[in-house]
């Protein structure tokens, strides 16, 4: 009996949070399928069916007094769900250009993250050198500052370097904010790999570098995947820094591009939502396909001997 209540409570808890998580996502999906003027619709239906409407009062007004325009002049209400926003997204906007920008930046940040974190983490895990402790603490300290606080110094630094409005500037900032975490992450993983493995490899004839990339690196793939994912995500969905650094619309990344649908007077909610859905697809696929590594990477220490 007690167990039953426990199960029920557990499920209630899970359902509650599932709703909390899923509702916004479904809502975005729903909006992306609706037309702009249906955004304020009170209906809870995710997909709306095209309905004929009749202007009973013949005054082009909703009951509440809001004016309604029958744009197509066919007596059919435009609010039926459809993929129109998605077509418009690719046809009428620079969405593809922003995607390209985002992909280039994210991939470069990921590469830098993986390369530097794998090497830096290794050094911190295996070698004793002067400044090691200090370096590790310093890396950790950088994680304590909120990104917004660093905006101004970053901006000043980049403007000195003449890197405002350039990919390179953005890549430097993204990498430098993602790297500390990634280095710690990799260091933590290397710590679980017995040093005897490299020692054995070195006696087998490997140089220190060979032992690292032939033995240790392949073993660290779960951690590398997480590092890659983290770096990718950090740059893929970042808005604030990009908004400061990139001013030329041709250089916009996806989050910036999406935001540009939001104007002061009218916002194209359909496009906005459709864009949001498309942007989240690659990340979702990445997460699902890498979830195997995520689990094994986060439950470290499984690599004994």
């Amino acid at each position: 009996m007690k167990k039953k209540i426990e199960t029920i409570l557990t499920f209630m808890f899970l359902v509650f949070f599932s709703i909390g998580t899923l509702y916004p996502v479904l809502n975005i999906l729903s909006v992306s399928l609706k037309t702009d003027n249906a955004f304020h619709s009170q209906s809870l239906a995710l997909i709306q069916i095209r309905e004929k409407f009749e202007d009973i009062n013949n005054n082009n007004k909703w009951d509440e007094g809001e004016i309604f325009f029958d744009k197509n002049d066919n007596g059919i209400w435009d609010a039926g769900s459809g993929l129109r926003s998605y077509f418009n997204l690719f046809k009428d906007t620079d969405f593809l250009l922003w995607s390209r920008n985002s992909i280039i930046i994210s991939l470069l940040v990921t590469m830098t993250g993986v390369v530097f974190a794998s090497i830096g983490g290794y050094a911190l895990s295996r070698f004793k050198f002067k400044g090691r402790e200090f370096g590790m603490i310093a890396l950790l300290t950088t994680q304590m500052f909120p990104a917004t606080m660093l905006l101004l110094p970053f901006f000043i630094l980049l403007s000195y370097l003449g890197l405002i409005n350039s990919y390179l500037g953005l890549i430097i900032i993204y990498s430098s904010t993602a790297l500390p975490f990634c280095i710690w992450q990799m260091k933590g993983y290397y710590d679980t790999i017995p040093p005897a493995l490299e020692e054995s490899a070195r006696l087998d004839g490997c140089t220190q570098l060979q032992a690292f990339y032939k033995i240790i690196l392949p073993l660290s793939s779960p951690a590398l995947v997480i590092t890659a994912l983290f770096s990718f995500m950090a740059s893929w969905s970042e808005y604030v820094v990009a908004a400061i650094i990139l001013q030329d619309p041709k250089l916009y990344t996806l989050p910036l591009g999406l935001k540009s649908f939001q104007a002061s007077l009218s916002t194209q909610w359909g496009l906005y939502a459709a864009g949001a859905v498309v942007v989240s697809i690659p990340v979702t696929i990445l997460f699902i396909s890498l979830s195997k590594y995520l689990v094994s990477g986060l439950t470290m220490g499984s690599v004994k001997e």
Binding site: P194, A196, L197, E199, S200, A201, L203, I215, L219, V303, K304, E305
Partner: peptide, 10 residues
Amino acid sequence: MVFQNYALYP
């Protein structure tokens, strides 16, 4: 060298 924990490459 043969190590205590064998140190085989997993």
